[in-house]
Structures are given as structure tokens and as C-alpha cells.
Design a protein around this nucleic acid. Sequence first.
DNA 1: ACAGCCATGTAACTTGTTACATGATTTT
DNA 2: AAAATCATGTAACAAGTTACATGGCTGT
Lengths: 168, 168
Amino acid sequence: MSIRYGLLALLSRGPRHGYQLRQEFEASTGATWPLNIGQVYTTLSRLERDGLIRQGEADEQGRVVYEITEAGRAEVERWFGTPVTPADRPRDELVIKLAMAVATCPDALKVIQAQRTASMRAMQELTRAKRDTASPAQRLVLDSMIFQVEAEQRWLDHCEAVLREEQS
Amino acid sequence: MSIRYGLLALLSRGPRHGYQLRQEFEASTGATWPLNIGQVYTTLSRLERDGLIRQGEADEQGRVVYEITEAGRAEVERWFGTPVTPADRPRDELVIKLAMAVATCPDALKVIQAQRTASMRAMQELTRAKRDTASPAQRLVLDSMIFQVEAEQRWLDHCEAVLREEQS
DNA sequence: ACAGCCATGTAACTTGTTACATGATTTT
DNA sequence: AAAATCATGTAACAAGTTACATGGCTGT
């Protein structure tokens, strides 16, 4: 629901049109997850269908402007007030992969090694991206990814240690 | 694609029927993400549609048994050999929420506080769950979540520090 | 004239998810 | 007899995603 609520939150600041929403969304969340412009419009249609936004009057340039409704405002409030729990998060593909590998794969250690290499490269790219990013919001997003990759690396080490212990 | 590839990986060990697949999947990945049995069958249909598995002969108990095809085996190999990158992961709802909150919300600090409380509670539940889990595979999954919540807590501290600095 | 950006939208698709229907077998 | 578990499946939907069509405007 990230995009859905993200756009709704942007609209709670004031009326916006679709193209503008993509710009602001990407300005906040950065280049790691590019947002296809088509998706903005599909998401806006669904938000309108659900009564959380409505089409306002057109721009002076004739652009279609959306504005948040009362129901939408309440929904944003609820969203900001509700923390994210582990159960809310989608299944982590890496975790599933390793869980399957330890039971299935000829050698799970190879999977771990390949992932570790990729993680290190990801870390390099993230630090480089952070160096090149001026926007504070985008830096926070990059920081989050850096912390997550660090956690991933720790977990990979841990998995390898557990595996080696089991084998011996 | 976690479920899709997860089931495919299980089938690469040998023929299985649907109910059994759910049991083995949950035995590996644990109780945090329960797998609805209906989803097993929808996913199996789609895997069959894509030529990655096929229906074999029925069980001695008359149960429908699926087996992996050559194409499926190749796909599993490819999956195990391909690392997960940050771009592969879905947008993190917490990250989006905070990125929106710092720019939109009356006070983002409240959002951070609420999340921190939830994170601490999540951590408690995860350590309790780990204490009660004998299966090594499930313990690894729980360890992954623990590392992730730790990273989340570090990031929340970091966000708060950055915010307070900006305000002053 | 043409390339590139601004701008809106739709059709088709994917995976994930749940609610429901159905019946057999096993346990209490 | 009733409850629980085993077992298979379908219908309907949500959210995310991309490819494509369409046209206006701007700078070279």
C-alpha cells in the first residue's frame, strides 16, 4: 500500500495533478524505486473509486487536479498513527530463498556467498548514491537501505556460522 | 515471487501434493507469514500454466501430486544463483511513511515514537518466538527478522537525530 | 522539422490474498 | 454424532507494473 498511501499523503498537503505527484514522490523517495507515471494514474483512479480523493477543478493550464476528501484525510491520519509490524511486511525473498536452500540446495553456502558479494556491491552503490544526494528526505531513504544491507550482511554471516556448525 | 519460487524449490526435492507443500513451506518459514492453503493451489495452477511443474500420477491415497519439469528445475537453479538486490525488494512502507511524514505531517516525531514502541514490542515477541522454536530453519527466519528490527530501531534513532538537528 | 519533456490515460497483466464450496477421513 | 483435520479447488479481488496511445508545448 506504499504508493497508494504515499500519494494520498502528498495530496493531504494540497491539490496536485498526476505528473506533479510523481515528481514529488520521487523527490522524497529517490531513484531506487522509480515510479512509472502510468501507475500514478491507475492509483489515482482507485483512490477516487474508494472516495479518498476527488477531481477538483482543472488547472489554469488545464491540468487535471485531484484533491483529498474528508475520508481521505482521516485515512492518512490513521496511516500515520498506525505503526508497521513484521506481519505487515511482505515475505522477504532472500529469507525464503535461504530457508529453501538450507533444506534443498546442494550447497546453500554458495547461495550465501553470491548474496554476500551482491550485498557488498549494493553497499558501495548506496554510499556513492548518498554522497551524490543533496535532498535530506532521499538521504534518509538511502540511510534506511544502508542499515538494511548491514543487517543482511550480519544475517548472512550468522547463517553461514550456523550452517558450518551443523555440518561438523 | 517468494511463494512461487518457494513452492517450486520444494518441488525440486521431489513430487508433492498441495497440502504437503503448505506444511513444508510453513515448517521452513514459520508462523509470522501464514500461508493460506488456497494460495498454494492458485500458485500451483500458475506454475503449471507456465510449464514449470506438471501434474504427475495420483497418490496411493488419490491425492493430486505435482512434479517439477526440466524448465522448472532450470528456473530454480537460476533463482538460487541470482542474488536479491535492493531494487528487487518492494518499497518499504515504513520508509515511505516516514519520507512523507517529514515533509507532510504536523509532527513526524510522533510517528517515529509510535513506531519505536511497536518495534520494541515486535522485538520482544520475536525473541519469545525464537525461544519456543526448535526448528533450525524457522530460527534462521526469526533471526533475520530480529536483525531487521534492530536495523529499523537504529534507523529510527537516526531519523530522530536528523529531524531534531534540522529543527534547531 | 524534430527531439525531448510535459501530461493524461487505458489495457493487460502479475503476484498475493481471502472467502467460499466441497467432501473424505480421523479423533473425541 | 460432532468436531477437527486432511485435501482440493474456484471466484473475486487488491495492489503493483508495464506497454502503449495520445497530444501539447518547448527548445534547437
